[in-house]
Amino acid sequence: MSNVEIGMGQPNAALAEAERRARADRAKKAKRVESLKLNLYRVLLIGGFLLLWEFASGRLIAPFFISAPSAIFRRLYGWIASGDIFFHMGITATEALSGLLLGSVIGIVVGTILGMRPFLARLLDPIITTFYSLPKVALAPLFILWIGIGIDMKITFTAAIVFFLVFLNTYTGVRNVSRELISILYLMGANEMQVLRRVVLPSAITWVFAGLRISVPYSLIGAIVGELMASNKGLGALLVRAQGEFDTAGVFAALVAIMALAVIFNMAVRRLERKLMPWKQAEQDQQAAV
């Protein structure tokens, strides 16, 4: 071997990389076939259930209790045609989303600070634990007294629920950052802000997203419960109104709308997650290829 030079390892490495890619491709194809099959079965399952429901309504169980898919669909269609549903969905979405944003931003900031300052964390621990144990729904009357029954009450209420979930996850994430990685960066001459940006936050973000994913349904709980208590707009109010009119189809239709909102929220969080953590995607692909 005459060519003693850096980089001799490359052809082998390139070959291994090509092989890895081919394996990843195969794995991806198999995955696609499987997900197609899954989706087909899902459609069959849900379709079958709806048919059964439609058949049972009025024959086995009174429509007052279970309404019927066709009636629910007609009600939904009516709301869509009149634009009502978009108005109410928009209100609920605004409340849930604003509360989610507000609560998680405060949660991330406080979680990061306490994570970086163990003394402060120990100091505040009993207070935080006490408030965490308090059922947040019990705070709603207080918020109503303070800020009334408008949209800002639902936002505050939602934020209070979301805050704890995101805060606790962020705190745990920051506490779990590898000490060695931090040391290595300090040895490079980094200051605290640089360590925060390059090590602590990227490392904690996995935890933050775990908190955000749990928070999505809770943010909707916050908004809807707030609306159930005191409101005349939003999906929760729609729900209450339908119930008051003994309109079972309307109740179900409102529930469908809430579910749709939850699905959209979840998808948004997952998309954000993929965008902010490209290395996670790489890790997943890697695992699929092995």
Partner: peptide, 25 residues
């Protein structure tokens, strides 16, 4: 400058990002 047994690369940064880290600092 310390290179430990464990390479301690930043998992969230690609090869270029990892090598650039000290230069950015």
């Amino acid at each position: 400058g310390y290179m430990t047994q464990n390479d301690h690369l930043l998992p969230w940064r690609d090869v270029v990002g990892n090598i650039s880290t000290p230069l950015e600092i």
